[in-house]
Structure formats: structure tokens, C-alpha cells
Simulated scan of single mutants.
Amino acid sequence: MNQSRLMSLVEAITNVIVGYGVAVVTQILIFPVFGLQTTLGQNLAMGGIFTIVSLFRSFLLRRLFESRRVAGQRR
């Protein structure tokens, strides 16, 4: 079964949205342990930056693995 580029993107976006929430909550809980004081706005902004990077990473890795899978079927 092939996964379309659109469905790869939908999967990556869903994964990253969930990851964004986890990252922000983790930052709020962990940063003070290391003496880092940030505002909620700063945590949301950092989470947003990491989310964008993660979205591109997830999508590109998914496409890489899908292309390798399809290439393996052609042999």
C-alpha cells in the first residue's frame, strides 16, 4: 500500500501538533529545574520554532522511507 504525499503531510502535521503540546508542557516543567525562567509566551514561541523544524523533518523522513520502499518493490 502506498501513502500519498498528502497523507504523509497530514500524518506529519498531526504528529507535530501533539508533539508541540508535549514540548511546551515539558519546557514549563523542566526549565525551572535547570534554573531557566521563561514566560508562557517564550515557551509557546520556542515550541513553535521546534514544531516547524519537526514538521519538515517528519515529512522529509517519511518521503525518504516511502521512496526507498517503492524502489525496493521495483527490483
Rank of each mutant, 00 (worst) to 15 (best):
N2K: 15
N2W: 12
N2F: 13
Q3E: 15
S4D: 09
S4I: 05
R5S: 14
R5Q: 12
L6Q: 14
M7V: 14
S8C: 11
S8Y: 11
L9N: 00
L9A: 08
V10H: 06
E11N: 11
A12E: 04
A12Y: 00
A12L: 03
A12K: 00
I13V: 14
I13F: 09
N15M: 08
N15D: 06
V16C: 03
V16K: 03
V16R: 05
G19T: 01
G19A: 06
G21Q: 00
G21A: 00
G21F: 07
G21W: 00
V22T: 00
V22I: 10
V22S: 02
A23N: 09
A23M: 06
A23Y: 01
A23L: 09
V24Y: 03
V24W: 04
V25E: 06
T26S: 11
I30F: 13
I30V: 15
F31N: 12
F31R: 09
P32F: 00
P32S: 05
P32W: 04
P32I: 03
P32D: 02
V33D: 10
V33L: 15
F34R: 05
F34D: 06
G35Q: 02
L36V: 12
Q37R: 07
Q37Y: 08
Q37E: 11
T38L: 14
T38Y: 14
T39A: 08
T39V: 02
L40H: 06
L40F: 13
L40W: 11
G41Q: 03
G41M: 08
G41P: 08
Q42P: 03
L44E: 06
L44I: 10
A45Q: 11
M46K: 13
G47F: 00
G48E: 01
G48P: 00
I49S: 04
F50V: 03
F50G: 10
T51V: 04
T51F: 01
I52D: 02
I52T: 09
V53P: 01
S54A: 12
S54R: 03
L55E: 03
F56H: 07
S58E: 00
F59C: 07
F59H: 08
L61R: 08
L61M: 12
R62L: 11
R62V: 00
R63H: 05
R63M: 13
L64K: 01
L64N: 04
L64Y: 05
L64P: 01
E66Q: 09
E66H: 08
E66M: 09
S67T: 03
S67F: 04
S67M: 04
R68H: 11
R68E: 10
R69M: 09
V70P: 02
A71G: 08
A71E: 10
G72R: 15
G72I: 11
R75E: 13
